[in-house]
């Protein structure tokens, strides 16, 4: 297990390779379909949100307000990342992301952006909303709640040892590409 603390340096990111299991600690932001489309169309991040050196989590959490009026994360697994493929490369380039967390992997443009700008794709366990919510110790803030609704808002998470696997590294390797090619070749044997 490799411990990563946000903000993460380019050097550390470039040393990671496909198959490495990591634990992410520190500030993390959520952003999914609406946020990506908004940024792609030239939208600006709200005040107080800075992705530089940071990690963006493709996640639409279940969050409720507790009795003290504090946000409490009830469930927070990853959403399918491939929907952000048209936009992700640009968000990596323009906002200085070092990591993207999601599930299912992403395509060629994101892989190329990871290599060019120094970023990795971290695969969290899809559906494991409780294990992952346990790693989110605090939810200090939310942005675009009115504009995009709760699942699509930008939530700020304080995380401790959030588990994920590097499935696309900053050296052009993708586990998703490998597994697709191998499984396609294997399937041909049984048809």
């Amino acid at each position: 297990m490799i411990e990563l603390k946000t903000p993460i340096s380019e050097e550390i990111i470039r040393s990671l390779k496909v198959g490495d299991e990591v634990l992410v600690t520190g500030r993390m932001f959520t952003g999914r379909d609406a946020v990506h489309k908004y940024l792609h169309e030239g939208g600006q991040l709200p005040a107080g949100v800075d992705f530089k050196g940071g990690v963006l989590y493709h996640c639409g959490p279940v969050i409720i307000k507790d009795d003290q009026g504090q946000w409490k994360c009830v469930a927070a697994g990853p959403t399918t990342s491939i929907r952000e493929e048209p936009y992700q490369w640009q968000v990596i380039r323009d906002f200085g992301l070092r990591g993207v967390i999601g599930k299912g992997g992403m395509g060629e443009r994101t892989l190329a952006a990871c290599k060019e700008y120094g970023c990795v794709y971290l695969h969290a366990i899809g559906g494991a909303a409780q294990v992952l919510a346990e790693c989110i110790k605090r939810v200090p803030n939310v942005h675009f709640m009115e504009k995009f609704g709760a699942p699509e808002a930008i939530w700020e998470f304080e995380t401790v040892q959030f588990p994920a696997v590097v499935t696309m590294d900053a050296n052009g390797n993708s586990l998703h590409k490998e597994v697709f090619a191998a499984s396609q070749a294997e399937l041909a044997k049984y048809l």
Partner: peptide, 17 residues
Amino acid sequence: QNIALARNKSQPICQDT
């Protein structure tokens, strides 16, 4: 682990309900 936690805490197994 997630299955056990969700049951014990009575919270959604997955956030996408």
